[in-house]
Design a protein around this nucleic acid. Structure first.
Length: 431
RNA sequence: GCGAGCGUAGCCAAGUGGUUAAGGCAGUGGAUUGUGGUUCCACCACUCGGGGGUUCGAGUCCCCUCGUUCGCCCCA
């Protein structure tokens, strides 16, 4: 192809699809606002070291999926592969911790990961996420999960599953890691290649391998839940109890291991069975060590991120397309009439109406056909006759009834018009 | 990074070595002068993602490349 096209793993979100995005954003915004979360916007690219330190050099995200390049000043720069590191950097850099108490933040925007595209997986994708900084209370873990739940449910998504696990604190994890290595080492040669590789580097990840034999072996592997210290155990028990109190059902999954190194204690995923291989819609957990790791004061934190593309795939499957109504479609013909139509349209918009102005100058017949397709409740018609008399014809598309009124009256009766239009809409009769 | 499938107009899609590349939807113009969702007519791919090769002849076979889909991997 000679023409330029969007890069691999990126795509355009066309108007037809954007209505879903707007619905998701509006819903999330409202729910987060009601829960006292504040939006934060951080740069799309950061110094590479932020992610290396924050996410962990041994992770795949950092090891092989980052969009990293040298800028003109020879700095190593990386397009953010996730949102948490940037938010935490900002939290530290701007001294948000100095405000004391708990900071509840949320963000949305594009993320970048150099991966092989697949259904529900792109190189540029979008997330909406929350971070609660400054509380180690199990209620924070649960609040965050409950909010994710609210958003998903408000959008009408059902049949989602919450998987949850605890990774304990750094000590628990270290101990468990050793126990796991001890258990797996005798089977080393039977493990799949990737898992053999991970045995020393990142043994926890072996637990969610999809290789059959590896699965069999890890079936009897020690569970992290048996290696939690007293405090970790208590924290997790409380989280589970509170979830139950809230009526949120969950599934314990001791193989759930999140891919980013910063997670501690609670780790969870909200999973859909309607997404194919990329089934996780929302993933998150607690990351008590990250703020300190990045040079800030020791600050416990929890958060999650929702994958917007995946969410929208699900939403589209529900076939509940948000409908956009139009109040008027403005049809005009003749130089004078066309000019008046433009002016009338402007005034009506200022009066709060939505409308589309036909610019084609083609035969009325054609313009009406377009009016019909536009889904407008009513048509405003301006021809030579109307232009001469400063009037306009108002035609209700559903009933085909039409009347002539002066342009001034039309604007004066804005309130009444609004009611009439709304009554057509609610009666479901548009055209 | 690995494996497999696919790639014909804006969209869906026939075609599987042989004259001018079906059809449908959408779109555009028209069926006399200012009125819609029906109908009717016309127009709408010098070309089959791109490049190379085999052949008298390729959308149809082969190679490369790009894209895409589904897995692996990874994760949202």
């Amino acid at each position: 192809m000679g023409t330029i096209q969007a890069l691999r793993g990126t795509r355009d979100i066309l108007p037809e699809e954007v209505v879903y995005w707007q619905k998701v954003e509006a819903t999330a915004r409202e729910i987060l606002g009601k829960a006292a979360y504040q939006e934060i916007r951080t740069p799309i690219f950061e110094e590479t070291g932020l992610f290396e330190r924050g996410i962990g050099e041994a992770t795949d995200v950092v090891g092989k999926e980052m969009y990293t390049f040298l800028d003109r000043g020879e700095r190593s720069v990386t397009l953010r592969p996730e949102g948490t590191a940037g938010v935490v950097r900002s939290f530290i850099e701007n001294g948000l911790f100095a405000q004391g108490g708990v900071q509840r933040l949320w963000y949305t925007g594009p993320m970048f990961r150099y991966e092989r595209p697949q259904a529900g997986r792109q190189r540029q994708f979008h997330q909406i996420g929350v971070e609660v900084l400054g509380s180690s209370d199990p209620r924070a873990d649960v609040e965050v999960i409950a909010i994710a739940n609210n958003i998903l449910q408000s959008l009408g998504l059902k049949s989602l599953r919450l998987d949850i696990n605890s990774l304990g604190n750094a000590e628990d994890r270290q101990q468990y890691r050793q126990a796991l290595i001890d258990y797996l080492t005798p089977y080393k040669n039977e493990l799949d290649a990737d898992s053999q590789d991970r045995l020393t580097r990142n043994p926890l990840r072996i637990l969610d391998s999809k290789d059959e034999r590896t699965k069999e072996i890890s079936l009897n592997a020690p569970s992290i839940l048996d290696h939690l210290g007293v405090d970790s155990k208590q924290h997790f028990d409380q989280v589970l109890q509170l979830l139950t109190d809230l009526g949120i059902s969950y599934q314990l999954n001791h193989r759930l291991v999140r891919g980013l190194d910063y997670y501690t204690h609670t780790a969870f995923e909200i999973i859909s069975d309607d997404l194919g291989a990329q089934a996780t819609v929302c993933g998150g957990g607690r990351y008590d060590g990250l703020v300190a790791e990045l040079g800030g004061p020791d600050t416990p934190a929890v958060g999650w991120a929702i994958g917007l593309e995946r969410l929208i795939i699900l939403l589209q499957k529900l076939q509940e397309k948000p409908i956009q109504f139009l109040d008027f479609y403005v049809v005009s013909r003749g130089e004078k009439a066309e000019a008046q139509a433009l002016i009338l349209g402007q005034k009506l918009r200022q009066a709060g109406f939505s409308l589309e102005l036909d610019l084609s100058g083609s035969a009325f017949k054609k313009q009406f056909a377009r009016a019909d397709k536009s889904g407008a409740v009513a048509c405003l018609i301006l021809g030579d006759e109307e232009a001469e008399n400063q009037t306009v014809k108002l035609k209700w598309m559903a009933t085909k009834e039409q009347q002539t009124i002066s342009q001034i009256d039309l604007l004066d009766k804005a309130e009444q018009l609004r009611k009439e239009i709304d009554s057509y809409r609610t009666s479901g009769v548009t055209s």
